[in-house]
């Protein structure tokens, strides 16, 4: 076991001679069994599908080896890296800026390919040397709606505000720069919506 997430357990396992990661959505005892199996099954299928689509759009994601919706298991490539959430504090200002331009760029590519990540946080991006790998598409969906893009971006910004509040402005600016670069003309509308979604949170100052 390498991680026990809220959504699934991640287990490192040798599988047909490969070093693989098994993402297992275990039943949640606190959830009604029907609701639980419905959520686990649909999320497993959707995640596998979207990991593949993301890869086609040019965003690095783990390789998929096997998908089993009935047991809610995905067998994929093990990416040996650190998550960006933990890496951020160890970088220089310039390194952080470049990192977030790239992250924003990949986010723009995902959105451009009609993919909404659904849990776009710094915990879900791995840094493997210079390579970035996007993981955990468990809440992802296929959509090009501006609203969903805005919600996706808002989650990243919320993460910057709550966890990386020390560099929030700097990181957001870099992220937006990269996002605009790859998504092009559609970026503005999504970024504007991000601001609107943030204000929709309760009691946010509206000016």
């Amino acid at each position: 076991m390498i991680a026990k997430g809220a959504e699934a357990d991640l287990v490192l396992r040798e599988w047909n001679g490969l070093k693989t990661l098994h993402k297992i959505r275990k039943p949640k005892g606190y959830r009604h069994p029907e609701l639980d199996s419905r959520l686990r099954r649909s999320r497993t299928k959707a995640e596998a599908d979207i990991i593949h689509r993301a890869k086609l759009s040019g965003v690095p994601t783990p390789l998929l080896y096997h998908v089993d919706p009935d047991d809610a298991v995905i067998v994929m490539e093990y990416v040996d890296g650190v998550n960006v959430r933990d890496a951020v504090d160890r970088l220089t200002d310039e390194e952080r800026r470049i990192l977030f331009i790239r992250i924003g760029g990949y986010a723009g590519m995902l959105h451009g390919a009609g993919i909404i990540h659904g849990d776009l946080t710094t915990s879900n991006i791995l840094k493997q040397g210079d390579k970035l790998v996007f993981i955990d598409f468990g809440l992802a969906e296929v959509s090009t709606e501006v609203e969903k893009r805005g919600v996706d971006l808002n989650l990243m910004n919320r993460m910057l505000t709550s966890t990386h509040y020390r560099y929030q402005e700097q990181l957001l600016a870099a992220f937006v720069e990269g996002y605009r670069e790859t998504l092009g003309g559609e970026a503005e509308e999504a970024l504007t919506r991000m601001g609107e979604v943030a204000k929709r949170g309760r009691y946010i100052e509206k000016n």
């Binding site: 809220a6 959504e7 609701l35």
Partner: peptide, 18 residues
């Protein structure tokens, strides 16, 4: 009740893990 509280459970669990 099952649906509303399962949603609370999920976000709480995610925040706890985070």
């Amino acid at each position: 009740q099952e649906t509303a509280y399962a949603m609370l459970g999920e976000v709480t669990e995610r925040a706890l893990a985070h």
